[in-house]
Computed example of a mutant assay.
Amino acid sequence: MFFKRKGWLRKEYDESFLKTFNELKDKWNKKEVIVERSVDPSDAVLVDMKLAKVKYLFLLKEAKHRNISIRKMS
């Protein structure tokens, strides 16, 4: 009885995790496009892009640790 709830909660948190993962991926891609299109990007823009990349890579490692398939939600 209790184990079913655990599986349900895991699915709910995995879905939330994947939603956050996709949002960070989109933010990183948008910032990367801005840097590529700009002639002389400011330091703040470069820092924002690198920070978004690091957050994305962290969540990617976390997904691997949790054994979450990124493909299933794309």
Results as ranks from 00 to 15, higher is better:
Asn67Ser: 07
Ser16Glu: 15
His65Cys: 04
Glu36Gly: 09
Glu12Lys: 15
Ser74Arg: 15
Lys19Val: 01
Phe2Leu: 07
Asp40Tyr: 06
Phe17Asp: 04
Val45Ala: 09
Val45Pro: 12
Leu51Pro: 12
Leu59Val: 07
Arg71Asn: 15
Phe3Asp: 14
Lys30Trp: 03
Ile34Asn: 02
Phe3Asn: 12
Met1Ser: 14
Lys6Arg: 14
Glu62Val: 14
Gly7Trp: 08
Leu24Gly: 03
Ala44Thr: 02
Ile34Met: 08
Val35Glu: 11
Leu51Trp: 03
Val54Thr: 14
Lys6Val: 00
Lys6Ile: 11
Val45Met: 02
Arg37Ile: 02
Lys61His: 12
Glu36Val: 00
Asn67Leu: 11
Val33Pro: 06
Lys6Glu: 07
Lys4Asn: 14
Leu60Met: 05
Lys27His: 09
Ser74His: 09
Ile68Asp: 10
Lys55Pro: 06
Leu9Lys: 07
Val39Asp: 05
Val35Arg: 05
Phe21Arg: 12
Glu32Val: 11
Glu12Phe: 15
Val54Ile: 15
Trp28Asn: 08
Lys25Ile: 13
Lys55Trp: 04
Lys55Met: 05
Asn22Ala: 08
Phe21Ile: 01
Arg37Asn: 06
Asn22Tyr: 04
Lys6Asp: 11
Asp43Gly: 03
Ile70Gly: 06
Ile68Val: 07
Val39Leu: 04
Lys11Asp: 06
Lys31Met: 07
Leu18Tyr: 04
Val35Ile: 04
Lys72Cys: 05
Val54Arg: 05
Asn29Leu: 15
Lys64Cys: 12
Tyr13His: 08
Ile68Phe: 05
Ala44Tyr: 13
His65Asp: 07
Ser42Met: 02
Ala63Gln: 01
Phe58Cys: 07
Leu46Arg: 09
Glu12Ser: 13
Arg10Lys: 12
Ser16Thr: 02
Leu46Thr: 01
Phe17Gly: 06
His65Pro: 02
Glu32Met: 11
Ile68Glu: 07
Lys4Gln: 14
